[in-house]
Design a binder for these strands. Structure first.
Lengths: 328, 328
DNA sequence: GTGAAAGCGCTAACAC
DNA sequence: GTGTTAGCGCTTTCAC
């Protein structure tokens, strides 16, 4: 690779000192009362030769990288993809860049990634945490690294977080099935995870079912298993319990469920899922969605993190954002 | 943030020099004939206090970051999400990390990102290039930065690339509609982009249609417009031309098309799309897919890039990977 | 076998 | 107003 120009090359070529160049490049020309003429000369030259400061050296020196790390479980999940997109745009307005990482359900990878980012002097973390990350995140917090969790939080961790009103969302969704759709046997398909957002959704479901004096019918799917197994389990769940309505706790569960419904002709028509997905209006039966307010979540996440970095958060900020039902 | 331990802290605490610590940490203990006892003592201590080298300083010094940049248009597109996942896993086996960025159709952002990555001493780039990136990529090449393009390539750029057999894929897909499905009026919905992979797909379609002596019916959709507009245009295209079969050049076009078909009850049953998507088996009509060999593409991309970094590519490597049809 | 010291490119306190 | 220089944490040459 052709040797890149450094600030001292610039200084030498211009016959001035690196300090002056540095000040000018960092918009401190006025403050340091460097002459307009010189400022212009430097800027023009820098522009002409296309000099770009080495960010690595800059970060090493300043301890700031103007970069935030975003860790999600699966970036191809439409919920995470959308939120990542929003977060990136918002952070950009504050002069921050985002590097993402998809953890793909692998705790060890996730830990390594957090460590990697930390080693690279990332200024702050945005994490949709999985179980098993408690320890690493705890370590970050102990080192005063700015962190904000979203989508869920971890029970024994005192952190900033932004989550959706899961309980209430599930409550509304279930009621929608029972009252609007007049379903009488409504099941919940969720995952066998203790993640708080899943607990909230389950409790919301339970409350709604309970209030109507109906049976609670719950299936917990093993998270890591093959899609085919999931499909079969959902089929059995629906058939064995003669469900006429079903609430899926996540959009990927709904997708597996739809495959089951279609493939085995289960004839179920009343379906609600957490998280909107482009497919839900396309399929038969159409799926109503409990949609999380992605824009609001992203906005809060970025605000909180930037404030944290700037030391403006006096105490923990924990935000719960309402959901909305999209009836189909 | 609590001050992190540096290598000199370690050396000081152990009463030895930084050199020795550095050698041991970089697996040069044997080579430099450092005693086993000392090696063990250092390793144990480092482990105990949880010291991690500052990667920034390391990269600054060595000029290598063991990190690759992956730039795609839209990481929420299932094709890119899947390929990103594979690439990440493969690169990891070579000791490389991946940082992604989604360019979201914004050339300026993309340029900035490339520059940012470059400034951060990224060891190589994997890019699914959009038009307008020619210049920046040219600049990378001029600076001998290892680059490999995938999914498409840019005409006047002499680079490594890995692409699918677009022409042949479209040919097979179109033939499938004409011969297997006995469609007689088959249209192509593509985007108004000059990207080479789109040209290849169009030509494949044309060849197949031509061979059967059928009419060529092509609609180019403006890439940036609202989904609703796309839906309306596809509806009109299908209706105005009384199509009984349609080939979509990308999976997101197919998704819009499916919305049109469903919403306006177009009654079209013979549909093929480039790129597999989880939805295609769920919807009515089921969509057959011209599936790209994602695993092979990822493997080639990583191999080529690593070889390039290690100076093992004597000349440009340009690979074309066959597609496969998933009939439904 | 181990250590001293230069230097990667940058910022900023201090000097003049 | 501008320059000198220390130092961020690391690797590696050279010296002993």
């Amino acid at each position: 690779m052709k040797k890149r120009l450094s600030i001292s090359d610039i200084a030498k070529n211009l016959g001035i000192s690196v300090t002056t160049v540095s000040f000018i490049l960092n918009d401190k020309a006025k403050e340091k009362r460097i002459s307009d003429a010189l400022t212009k000369r430097v800027l023009d030259y820098v522009n002409k030769v296309g000099y770009k400061p080495n960010q690595l050296a800059k970060s090493l020196r300043t301890g700031k990288s103007k970069t935030l790390g975003l860790l999600v479980e699966d970036i191809s999940n439409s919920f995470f993809a959308n939120i990542a997109d929003q977060i990136e745009k918002l952070a950009y307005d504050f002069g921050y860049h985002i590097v993402y990482c998809s953890m793909n359900n692998d705790v060890n990878r996730a830990k390594e990634l957090i460590q990697l980012f930390y080693d690279r002097q990332i200024d702050g973390f945005i994490i949709a945490p999985t179980e098993g990350l408690t320890e690493v995140i705890q370590k970050l917090l102990k080192n005063n690294v700015p962190v904000v969790l979203f989508d869920r939080h971890l029970e024994d961790l005192e952190t900033n977080f932004v989550i959706s009103e899961n309980h209430n969302g599930a409550l509304i969704g279930t009621r929608f099935l029972l009252e609007e759709k007049k379903a009488s046997r409504v099941g919940l398909v969720t995952i066998n995870s203790n993640q708080l957002q899943m607990r909230g959704r389950m409790e919301g479901y339970m409350e709604a079912v309970d209030a109507m004096g109906k049976d609670m019918l719950i299936k917990k799917i093993v998270r890591a298993q093959a899609d085919e197994d999931t499909i079969l389990q959902i089929r059995d769940f629906i058939q064995d319990n003669r469900l006429d309505g079903v609430l899926f706790a996540t959009n990927y569960l709904a997708l597996s469920g739809l495959k089951a419904i279609k493939r085995y002709d289960l004839g179920i028509e009343k379906v609600v899922s957490f998280d909107e997905n482009a497919v839900f209006s396309l399929v038969e039966p159409a799926v109503s969605a409990i949609s999380q307010n992605i824009h609001e979540i992203a906005r809060k996440v970025v605000d909180i993190l930037i404030n944290e970095i700037n030391g403006k958060n006096k105490e923990l900020v924990q935000v719960v954002v309402p959901c909305e039902i999209i009836a189909r």
